[in-house]
Design a binder for these strands. Structure first.
Length: 438
DNA sequence: TCTGGGGTCCTAGGACCC
DNA sequence: TCTGGGGTCCTAGGACCC
């Protein structure tokens, strides 16, 4: 019996590739996609990477230079990306069993075939996604998830691989040199902090990390890093995430945003918190959960003068678990009252729902039932927004819609900026792509 | 002038119980 | 007034991911 394999399929420059699907004029051009508020670069096409544009770069700091060199920028269009992601995942799920959707643009699959056959199926799968959805993906195949990640990066960096890499082939061909050329910071699970600590110990490459003693690594760091070491040695120990939340249900729900212009008084802060609470609450109901704690936080800019950064957070415990937008919005505002400095210049805030439990399983003594959304207010708001367009109806400021096209646009000055938004071609009739035949 | 958003897992430490 | 050890549960905070 051969060792079971993991397959990792990951789209190339996913957001930028999505922008190209319905706008062929972007082909071969450097394309960048910006975060909310058109803040910083979150995705780059290969051409943009070649120009040296780094992920996370603030857009304002490179805008002039970028425009001079022909870079095309787009605001992030999550509705389009989510729709293309669903198509891509659906196509791939037909090729191999055990799909585990890890993020919007990547999934793990658990093939039951041997290595050669898995390579063949992966190649066919890649072709089907490219032709059927228009998105290029790269595929890494290895005995563990961490090595599948490594193989996937390999496929992306080496065009000769045809977009599909098998770890054992790489190992046979290059031996230790393959891991020796990968900086430890590129390994899945090794972030900025950990990189620093590892480097201080002389662990600089993936090969250095692979050769560590797992037990002493656990003592010095944590069980998470120990798993990474084992996985680099071909021992699978990162399980699927299906167990805890039956695949779909979140264990906490966060809605937070940066403001396009700062908020400097608590009345506006309450508006924002109420809007975010309602968004979070909609997701809570969609997964039919109740929450028992509502947290809220707000913060000033971390880029201001030295020592000027301020952040505040608080939590309200609900008397009874609830999914009622009135109760939750009120609790969110209450969580910050008396805690936040009312005169600071806030640039972001958020609402976090905690203590989530299944609404259908919730039972208690008579007289102590959950404070459900008894007037069905949440459901009615959801329906109205579905029928007439989002942000048409809501509690307090959440129902006031401005002139902009964005769903987020409530007309308030603090809502986000998306000035370079492409069409939502796959989800809105009035924004469909138009083809011309000359 | 202008720097994202949504999530998970792990650990340490405190509260509480017997 | 003194006072042990072991367990569980919860929370806050850190670190990571894309």
């Amino acid at each position: 019996m051969t060792q079971p394999l993991m397959v990792l399929a990951d789209a190339n420059s996913f957001f930028a590739s999505c922008e190209r699907v319905f706008d062929p004029s972007l082909a071969r051009k450097p394309v960048v996609v910006l975060s909310n508020n058109d803040g910083c670069v979150v995705a780059r096409s290969a051409e943009a990477k070649r120009l040296g544009i780094k992920e996370g770069t603030p857009w304002f700091s490179i805008r002039e230079e970028a425009q001079r060199t022909g870079v095309v920028a787009r605001s992030s269009n999550y509705e389009l990306y989510a729709s293309l992601s669903a198509r891509m995942m659906s196509v791939m799920s037909r090729f191999m069993p055990g799909q585990e959707i890890y993020s919007i643009d990547e999934c793990f699959l658990s093939p039951s075939t041997d290595a050669r056959q898995t390579v063949r199926v992966s190649t066919a799968m890649r072709k089907a996604v490219l032709e059927g959805v228009g998105i290029p993906v790269s595929i890494g195949i290895a005995p563990t998830k961490t090595l599948a990640k490594v193989a996937n990066h390999w496929a992306k960096r080496h065009p000769a691989s045809g977009g599909v890499s098998l770890w054992t082939d790489i190992e046979q061909q290059y031996g230790d040199a393959a891991l020796a050329e990968i900086p430890v910071s590129d390994i899945w699970g090794v972030g900025r902090r950990l990189t620093k600590k590892l480097q201080a110990m002389g662990i600089v490459t993936a090969l250095d990390l692979q050769r560590q003693d797992p037990v002493s690594i656990r003592h010095r760091f944590s069980i998470t890093v120990e798993r990474t070491v084992l996985e680099l040695n071909g021992i699978p120990c990162i399980a699927g995430d299906a167990s805890a939340n039956d695949g779909k249900r979140k264990s906490e729900i966060l809605c937070s945003r940066m403001f396009s212009t700062p908020i400097t008084d608590m009345a506006h802060m309450d508006q924002a918190l109420s809007v975010y609470a309602q968004k979070a609450c909609r997701r809570l109901r969609r997964q039919s959960s109740l929450c028992s704690h509502v947290s809220a936080f707000c913060a000033t800019s971390p880029f201001g003068p030295e020592n000027s950064y301020q952040s505040f957070h608080g939590t309200t415990t609900l008397h009874d678990p609830s999914d009622d937008p009135l109760i939750i919005a009120k609790a969110a505002c209450q969580a910050l009252h008396g805690r936040a400095d009312p005169h600071a210049r806030y640039i972001r805030a958020g609402v976090l729902l905690l203590g989530l439990q299944d609404a259908n399983d919730f039972t208690t003594l008579h007289g102590f039932e959950a404070k459900r959304d008894t007037h069905n207010l949440g459901a009615i708001i959801d329906q109205a927004n579905q029928k007439f367009g989002s942000s048409r109806v809501g509690i307090g400021y959440g129902g006031i819609r401005g002139k902009g096209r964005g769903d987020e646009d409530t007309g308030a000055t603090w809502t986000m900026r998306r000035e370079m938004l492409s069409g939502r071609c796959t989800t809105r009739w009035d924004e469909m792509a138009v083809a011309h035949a000359d």
